[in-house]
Design a protein around this nucleic acid. Structure first.
Length: 467
RNA sequence: GGUCCCAUCGUCUAACGGUUAGGACACUGGCCUCUCACGCCAGUAACAGGGGUUCGAAUCCCCUUGGGAUCACCA
């Protein structure tokens, strides 16, 4: 297989969920790894459940994940003529037939089968009638009732299905729309998809699809069924497990690279390595390292990985992702050196971008809020002369680097015979209005001389007023 | 219920017949320290059970048990 062609084919019946995102990711990574082509196809043959907002939500999520596609998006609803041409061919060649049995008749067959303990299946009433298409008729596939169908799977190995498990399933519904199994095969054939990576909830569909490939006289693609993503209760991940929409994680302040790193490691591994950049993922992703067993989605681990990515990303690159959160919190920041400096002090202490934005407030709040709750506790008369001395010496500084600041502090500490711990908290409150922040030297460097002196002056004033 | 898949610490996983069964998250101690974090060090914790095969099984085979998926004119 010289040239890999993969695809992601979601149905637009809701937001892109975690499981779908991982399927998209694996297909994308594999295509990028092999220098192949990744195609996006929207499976909207279910007229009732498919919606335009869902289509947009999927695009939106993929865009955030930075998963781009080379061809498409193709919409199945716009390819009816392609499916019909293949239907005609299958009927003409005797692989399929028109069926006029009504849903009621089908249900009766199932009831009867259940009563006798047989498998509920279509009994083949119209199979040999040679009926023509007519309003309300469906097209069924002439499935073999003997023998077995082998599903070669790149992750699970060979899986064998007895053909008598299958019945003459529907290819085209009475409303003229193709069914999933048929449309998917026709699309994969015509789009020359040669590697199908999808959730293993699709393995039961695969023998049917292989039968269609055979009837169409087409070579089989490589199938790779990746294990499911489960919720903490070990059932398939769904809405009731909390956030399952991909964009919800974006809105929580996750980095897309952290999210795909996490998704990749759920079901795929590369020795002991846990942290992967996007480029590393592309470089190292192969199908033979995909695991066989289902995995539980662990939000705590995702959060830890996000923290690692935040630490490992350059402030300049982080800014773009952080800005929306700052704006949402009413902070008027711009992508400049000041912001980058602030980010650098916050990286080690933020698990999410949302959290980072919250911690960045003091950098952008002028004047800093001095509430009596905290300010009253630390900005007391006894620190007054220390702060004054600090302000004096700092104002004399011509360069405001960490080394310069340290020198000033040592002098003040020496003068008053105090330890850094004594003055650090009052100073922190003066500069940030809170008792928790990055190191005082680093924030002073970022704030710069002017802001520092202004905030100090204000704290001194606060103490004087309060007495 | 039929069919199919899966099975290593609580969780994600490494191991491709021979290891004191490794790493990460979480948790618990300690160190560092101007607060909070980060970081560093240490610790608790797993081969589902039973039969085989083999000089030797977490690794191969079978059974049991457990979990999951799927049984549509949904995808």
């Amino acid at each position: 297989m010289a040239f890999i062609r993969t695809r992601f084919a979601p149905s637009p019946t809701g937001y892109l969920h975690v499981g779908g995102a991982r399927t998209a990711l694996f297909n994308w990574l594999y295509a990028r790894h092999t220098g192949g082509t990744f195609i996006l196809r929207i499976e909207d043959t279910d007229q009732v459940r498919s919606t335009e907002p869902s289509v947009q939500a999927i695009f939106d999520a993929l865009r955030w994940l930075e998963i781009d596609w080379d061809e498409g998006p193709f919409f199945q609803s716009q390819r009816l003529d392609v499916y019909n041409a293949h239907i005609d061919r299958l009927v003409a060649e005797g692989h399929a037939y028109h069926c006029t049995c009504t849903p009621e008749q089908i249900e009766a067959m199932r009831e009867k089968a259940r009563a006798t303990g047989d498998k509920p299946r279509y009994d083949g009433t119209c199979r040999e009638k040679g009926l023509a298409a007519c309003p309300g008729s469906v097209v069924r596939f002439k499935a073999p009732s003997t023998g077995a169908t082998l599903v070669p799977d790149a992750v699970k190995g060979d899986i064998v299905f007895a053909n008598d498990e299958l019945d003459d399933f529907v290819l085209r519904r009475s409303d003229g729309m193709p069914t999933y199994n048929f449309a998917a095969v026709v699309d994969d054939v015509t789009m020359q998809i040669n590697t199908i990576i999808r959730g293993d909830d699709h393995v039961m569909n695969t023998p049917k699809q292989i039968l269609i490939y055979n009837a169409l006289n087409q070579p089989l693609p490589v199938f790779a069924h990746v294990p499911m993503v489960l919720g903490p209760d070990r059932t398939r991940l769904s809405k009731r497990h909390g956030a399952t929409s991909v964009t919800a994680y974006r809105d929580m302040g996750l980095l897309p690279d952290a999210f795909i790193n996490f998704l990749a490691r759920l079901g795929w591994s590369y020795g002991d390595q846990e942290f992967f950049t996007r480029a590393e993922l592309i470089e190292k992703f192969t199908l033979d390292r995909v695991g066989k067993s289902a995995g539980i989605f662990d939000a705590v681990k995702l959060s830890a990985l996000n923290a690692d990515h935040i630490k490992a990303t350059a402030p300049q690159a982080l800014a773009r992702h952080l800005l929306p959160f700052m704006q949402a919190q009413g902070l008027n920041a711009t992508d400049d050196a000041y912001l980058h400096g602030a980010i650098a002090t916050l990286q080690a202490r933020s698990k999410t971008l949302e959290e980072m934005a919250r911690q960045a407030h003091f950098y952008y709040t002028e004047p800093v809020a001095l509430d009596d709750q905290t300010a009253g506790k630390f900005l007391k008369p006894e620190v007054l002369e220390w702060l004054r001395a600090l302000a004096d010496r700092l104002s004399a500084l011509t360069s405001f680097g960490e080394k310069d600041l340290e020198t000033v502090f040592l002098q003040v500490m020496e003068t008053f015979q105090i330890k850094l711990g004594k003055i650090a908290q009052p100073l922190r409150v003066a500069l940030t209005g809170t008792t928790v922040s990055p190191g005082i030297f680093e924030i002073m460097v970022v704030l710069g001389k002017e802001r520092v002196l202004a905030r100090l002056a204000r704290a001194i004033e606060y103490i004087e007023k309060r007495g």
